[in-house]
Amino acid sequence: MKIVVCIKEVPATTKVKINPETNTLMREGVESIINPYDVYALEEGVCVKERLGGGSVVALSMGPPQVERSLKEAISLGADEAILLSDRAFAGSDTLATSYTLAMALDKIGDVGLVICGKQAIDGDTAQVGPEMSEKLDIPFVACVRKILEITEEKAIVERMTDDGYDVIELPLPAVITVVKDINTPRIAGLKGKMRAKKARITVWTATDINADEERIGLTGSTTKVTKVFAPQPRGLGMMLEGSPEEIIDSLYDHLKSGHVI
């Protein structure tokens, strides 16, 4: 089976902050990484290939040329090959334009049995590209898979996380799934994988290569627009309770009681 894992390169977002005075982003020393959820997707792709005893794992990404570095990392983690969709025309894509672009690339790759994405990317946290892509490809979609119980060339039985527990779903393939972190423990890239990645060549496709309709990619193909970026509101000051531990507890209890909180 040909398995495609979609990968996004993101800034290590926990370090991106807004300067509350100037309202600008502070990104000093923030490096780019593979979206953490996508590492689980990749690991699952490699596991599925191993379970099936054959096939290939293709890592697919869209972004500027430097994303090659992340795709090489994907190869060191077990992907057999990697494709980068890179073109100035893709810049400014929202999730709809991105999913269209990825879907066109998947068409070109052809004969894909399973597409795996991380649950969401940690920069945008939208969780939209996977499902939107499935719509364009017109194949089934299951979100938040926490376990692939069975898989053959034709179908998979998966557990989907829900708000109350999980569903067991029989899913015909090809299909798109997104995975949560519970699904596996990603491997550490070994030396052989790193050597392979060093030598690997990343295929680069432009908008023309994937026959993309220029009306549906990049800024032109995007339906949403960011109008403002700002820092979250800090909360008003509260009070520190002081004294001996017993006094503190008595004071807390009285406050909560009088505020009808307990």
């Binding site: 550490i188 890239a189 070994g190 030396l191 790193k194 050597m195 060093k198």
Partner: peptide, 14 residues
């Protein structure tokens, strides 16, 4: 060397 850096990075990650 590049190989030695790979060894260091791999062991460090573990």
């Amino acid at each position: 060397t590049e190989e030695q850096q790979m060894i260091r990075d791999t062991a460090r990650e573990i």
